[in-house]
Design a binder for these strands. Structure first.
Lengths: 284, 284
DNA sequence: CTGCCGATGTAATTTAACTACATTTAAATG
DNA sequence: CATTTAAATGTAGTTAAATTACATCGGCAG
């Protein structure tokens, strides 16, 4: 856990003098890591051992070790930050911002995804005789992508971005059917109804959505991720990216589970694509 | 500049003993930051002052200061590294790896994208009377996504993932037409031919692809990105993610260029979506 | 072969960090 | 309200780490 956050969180638990130390550090962490224990003690108006005790309280070996942790947390705190695009931004500027925000979003998704849930979703997928991917609006592209990906595994897979087709597929569903529903908010009425319908017909339902949403509650397995909301008008919809990566994760789990024979299959697909391409060294 | 990179880059300039130090640090930086100068000297089989001199050569005040820099660079130097999935990986493990590889790919794309080219692409898009997004295979999902995004701007936009439809659109193209072709390799024969056809019919062609590809050469504006190749079977196709973010960048540039009136339009679209959703506080 | 310069090591010095103990402060109980 | 006790803080001494100054080694030019 990030050291700065840790200090902030424990502020209440510290003693009076320790809090003085904490405040000095929080106010100017960059100065703090460059100071000796004596300097810092003077700044906080406490004795040197107090500073030392403060460090140990934060599970470090001592002052130098604490400085190391602090330094890391200063650097590590915000590798990629989500920054809003301003109307005055130059192309360089908004390009960077959007890439960085996207990476920040993926990082946040990574932090919040539950590998155990991934595992259960993979369980269902490998056992499925028929896989459907459903997504509406922005998530429909993700569903298409998923279809493309799983199609290479030589699995009966389809995707729909049409509510009627979704319902029809669900009505014909059976126990071997796995339905993957993709929705960032998890509040799209149509999709929630489809989830219900699918379960009524004994299909397994995997939801790729956000935590505590109606859709998550309706699913057999809810693969949830926290992705910063797109409050800003200019902001890209980072959720699609996270969803796509989640699909990649499921696909990978799927391949791993299926073992070697399926990997050969993948190779064949890749090779089949080759002849539709210009060679790397071709003149054109 | 990142300390680890700095060491690596200066390896040649170091003296024999200093290089020993450098190698020990590069081999196990995590150990290095936890060691004292004496320990590190012993590990590198050199004397303590040599280590100290090594530190100063890298523009630090001394050993402790160097450790701080190193710690920071460990934290933010290579935040996300692309690592291959092993068949023995646990769900936790492959989930992390895939997210991290995706982020690393986006980072690499970010480094290599040319903002000036982005700007020219935005020029073309804003002037276009009709925008087409074309993508085949894995890129077709990206094209769909782009359509969805630009549709919100109330611009005549269409996407196709069918070669025949692409050709038909190109034949009817005129000067006001902007064709955006999406292909990671830029070697798909069909797409390159479509690019040619589009230009013959005076359409503007934007390619989102990789550098020095046939498709890049055929386009009016080639928005190229370096994305690590998917050599590994298990690896996700990171290129799609980069392409999507590139679309986000173009969309953002588009909105910024169009100014305030168009932003109002965006708001209206967002609001229109609202009523198809369950409220956040709804009971279900 | 010899003298010089850069590179490296040794030993001494300085500085920083830590420990043990003393003192203060605050809290609780009779 | 006084007294006891424990927790918190500070002081001084100790230890360990880092740095400096100086000595020595080794390679290269003259």
């Amino acid at each position: 856990m990030n050291t700065i956050d840790k200090i902030q969180k424990n502020l209440a638990n510290f003693s009076k003098s320790e809090r003085k130390v904490a405040e000095v550090i929080l106010a100017e962490p960059q100065i703090a890591i460059q100071s000796s224990i004596a300097t810092l003690a003077k700044m906080a108006d406490v004795s040197e051992p107090t500073v030392n005790r403060f460090c140990r309280r934060l599970d470090t070996k001592g002052f130098p070790d604490f400085k190391l942790h602090l330094a890391q947390s200063l650097a590590n705190g915000t590798p990629y930050v989500s920054r809003h695009v301003e109307s005055s931004d130059s192309p360089e500027s908004y390009t960077s911002k959007i890439f960085e925000s996207s990476m920040a979003a993926l990082d946040s998704a990574k932090q919040s995804i539950d590998a155990q849930v991934v595992n259960r979703a993979v369980d269902l997928l490998t056992q499925g005789k028929q896989i459907y991917f459903f997504g509406l609006g922005a998530s429909s592209a993700v569903a298409h992508d998923a279809q493309n990906k799983f199609f290479r595994f030589n699995v009966p897979v389809m995707c729909f971005d049409d509510a009627l087709m979704m319902r029809m597929s669900c009505i014909n569903a059976s126990e071997g059917t796995v339905v993957v529903l993709i929705s960032h908010t998890g509040r799209t009425k149509t999709l929630v109804e489809v989830a219900k319908l699918a379960r009524e017909n004994h299909a397994h339902v995997i939801a790729i959505t956000s935590k505590d949403s109606p859709l998550a509650r309706e699913a057999s397995v809810a693969l949830t991720m926290d992705v910063p909301e797109d409050t800003d008008l200019y902001m890209p919809m980072a959720s699609r990216l996270a969803q796509m990566v989640a699909i990649d994760v499921l696909a990978t789990g799927f391949t791993l589970r299926r073992g070697i024979r399926f990997r050969d299959n993948l190779k064949r697909v890749k090779e089949a694509l080759r002849e539709s391409r210009f060679e790397k060294n071709s003149s054109l």
